[in-house]
Amino acid sequence: MSANMQQDDTPLLLAAGQGDRAAFGRLVERYHRAVIHFLQRFLTSQDADEAEDLAQDVFLAAWKAAPTFEPRAKVLTWLLRIATNAALNYRRDRQKRRAVSLDGTAPPTSDIESPVGRALSHETRETVTAALAALPPTQRAALILRHYHQLPYAEIAAVLETSISAVESLLFRARQSLQKSLACHKSESPPQVSPGPRVQP
């Protein structure tokens, strides 16, 4: 999480709620990477190239909802809640479309990698991406919010509109599933990579 995101941007969002476009522009500038990266990781690899369009919808929804923003929530938490709902809706619509037409889309290219990511083979990267995509949506959202955005459990609970104990359970089950999926591909991954610095959103 960047330093920018740790500052209190509530006044900007309140000003945006009163129609201040410049204030909203500053929020877009500060948070668009976090929202887009959340969506890229949440969507399956076939849909990751839709992340920017979906992020645009998220900010449009945020602009419309800004007058109703309650300063109890952090701006990032509030935006990620909108993004999560948008991603879940998108996924539901996508499943309906896929039921009608099965089209093969090439996976998108990726540009940003962590040092650990660079060390892993292309096969491992695809395996991990597929394992993440195979998680149930709320488990996947919880894991992304925790691992990549380093949100505290309380804020993940706020984003997913659930309890902290439910978040603990979601994260545990997500890791269990991930561990089972990746255990099948153990031979393709490097031996015992210790957790390195997280990729910043």
């Binding site: 476009r21 909203f24 522009g25 877009v28 500038e29 668009h32 990477r33 887009i36 990266h37 890229q40 990781r41 920017e52 992020a55 645009q56 900010f59 449009l60 998108p108 290219t109 990726s110 540009d111 940003i112 990698e113 962590s114 650990v116 990511g117 892993l120 491992t124 990267r125 991990v128 991406t129 993440l132 894991l143 691992h147 990549y148 890791r175 991930l178 561990q179 990746l182 991954s189 015992q192 990579v193 210790s194 957790p195 390195g196 997280r198 990729v199």
Partner: peptide
């Protein structure tokens, strides 16, 4: 190991004109 492997999921930089398109 799984936590470290998650770092393999890479993302791409947003388009330079994303903010302008939103506004």
């Amino acid at each position: 190991r799984c936590a470290a492997a998650l770092d393999a999921v890479s993302v791409s930089e947003p388009s330079a004109d994303f903010g302008a398109r939103v506004m």
